[in-house]
Design a protein around this nucleic acid. Structure first.
Length: 493
DNA sequence: ATGTCC
């Protein structure tokens, strides 16, 4: 393989596809910072030939170029192989800005603050629980509210909301006994982002989130009961306690309406203050403020609080599923669900790199610390941080672990999923929900989804091939594949 | 993603 090739030639119908992308290696493409006068750094995309083409079909390259103009941005702006257009900043995008005066942009984190994925593993065998699964999925669907706009039966009072916003999963485990101490060693940031200030979460955000703790939400959020279908790396899988045939549970959800409102509040506040802050942007959706400004500091503290709500949400759902497993599956073996890891894929964090203290924006991108990282919990030293990649609903999910090279390659970041290639509307037109439901059931999957149209929106054909996405991440040297998980039960909104 | 446009 030659390390450098001539600039990519592409015939095309879209202006962005004329972009002078240079191929750096098999899976890395670069748009130099001279492409547009206002760029401060280059843009890099991790992709193979097929994925680079789908990445160039929407506005995401233009959005990446816009991000490369942000004040304080360093090294390069990155796109993961599952990149697609988002609000201001692409989903699958990563950008790092230097403290103290670089900016933070809520659009670079996303509306669903700390949308993320949690993996639980049991020692139960999938073949042993198959007959009990319909009843288990029924109980799970009864105890976990799903769907857009749907809350739960209980509402947090102001004091309890403050404690959740400040303490996240740490609060629930230590004060409410909704989990065990070991859980906290297997959640990114220990289940609590520091610096959260509940007082900066608006009344409207609190109102929206008040009855949403322990709820799944809609869109691409789901809960799957799975089996470990294949182990890619026996040694790493063993160290994570994963073996072929085991039952796992994957939870994909975030901060619901609360995080959405936090993002809305700060996009507006930063947009209104842009003149005073002296910020000129190519796209108002990239509203931002220096990390050293009151707006920047307040957003970081409110974002941390919303992130803690999301950690607490996944912890609450975990607690409910554990109770159901314990009640319904104890006669088949040990029903314990051990937390393998919980990752955020919509969050910004202050991290140390050779350039100094940086605010790493990850939007639809997963942190992927390598085995030597000082930021890793002791239990994961020498292994690497688990990187959990949910595929599209009903297909497969991947467990990877980060490699040390990720720090230099991608600010320790990897992809977050398959990535949408078809709009929700197009997916609804392309497939009928009840047809998809029958297809899933024909494969022996227990499906719990009240709305067929919503099921259709999440059809696998609306997404990129998760295996191809993950292969790019592995070939780039960012993370290593450990295991492949396939659903046996699906719950979604 | 989202009380799908206060």
């Amino acid at each position: 393989m030659s390390p450098r090739r001539s600039p990519m030639q592409m015939q095309t119908h879209h202006v962005d596809m004329h972009a002078p992308l240079e191929r750096i290696d098999e899976v890395t493409w670069e748009l130099p910072s001279c492409y547009r006068r206002d760029m401060r750094v280059p843009v890099r995309i991790f992709a193979d030939e097929a994925l680079i083409e789908s990445a160039l079909h929407d506005r995401c390259l233009e959005q990446l170029v816009n991000v490369a103009t942000l004040h304080g941005v360093v090294r390069h702006v990155l796109a993961m192989p599952d990149v697609h257009e988002g609000y201001g900043f692409p989903v699958g995008g990563v950008a790092a800005t230097a403290l103290p005066d670089g900016v933070i942009s809520p659009g670079g984190i996303g509306f669903d603050v700390n949308c993320g994925v949690r993996l639980l593993v049991s020692t139960l065998r999938a073949t042993d629980v198959a007959h009990a699964l319909p009843a288990v999925m029924h109980e799970i669907s009864r105890s976990i509210p799903t769907g857009y706009g749907h809350g739960g039966r209980t509402a947090l009072d102001d004091a309890e909301m403050d404690r959740v916003l400040a303490g996240g999963a740490q609060y629930l485990v230590r004060e409410r006994h909704a989990g065990i101490a070991d859980d906290l060693d297997h959640i990114e940031s220990g289940g609590m982002l520091p610096g959260a200030e509940p007082a900066l979460v608006s009344e409207r955000a609190r109102t929206r989130g008040r009855d949403q703790l322990g709820t799944l939400g809609g869109g691409n959020h789901f809960l799957e009961v799975q089996r470990v279908a294949h182990v890619h790396d026996e040694a790493l899988a063993t160290r994570l306690g994963i073996a072929e045939g085991q039952v796992t549970v994957l939870i994909h959800t975030g901060s619901r309406g609360l995080g959405h409102q936090v993002c809305t509040d700060f996009v507006r506040r930063m947009d209104e203050r842009s003149d005073a802050l002296g910020i000129v942007l190519p796209d108002r959706q990239l509203a931002c403020a220096p990390l050293s400004s009151p707006e920047g500091r307040d957003y970081l503290a409110a974002m941390a609080a919303a992130a803690n709500f999301a950690f607490a949400n996944r912890q609450t759902i975990t607690h409910a599923v554990r109770a159901i497993f314990a009640r319904m599956l104890h006669t088949l073996g040990d029903p314990t669900l051990r937390l393998v890891y919980d990752v955020a894929h919509n969050v910004a964090k202050i991290e140390r790199y050779p350039e100094g203290e940086l605010c790493v924006h990850r939007k639809g991108a997963t942190r992927a610390l390598g085995p030597s990282s000082d930021d890793l919990a002791p239990a994961l030293r020498g292994i690497g941080q688990p990187v959990l990649i949910p595929g599209s609903m009903g297909t497969a999910s991947l467990v990877m672990v980060g490699r040390d090279a990720s720090a230099g390659l991608s600010f320790s970041s990897a992809c977050h999923g398959a990535g949408r290639v078809m709009s929700r509307g197009a997916a609804r037109r392309a497939i009928q929900g009840h047809v998809l439901r029958h297809q899933l059931e024909a494969r022996g999957i227990v499906v719990k989804c009240p709305s067929s149209p919503e099921l259709a929106e999440e059809a696998p054909l609306a997404y990129k091939d998760v295996d191809r996405v993950v292969d790019v991440v592995e070939r780039a040297g960012i993370a290593t594949k450990v295991a492949r998980l396939e659903p046996i039960g699906v719950l979604k909104g």
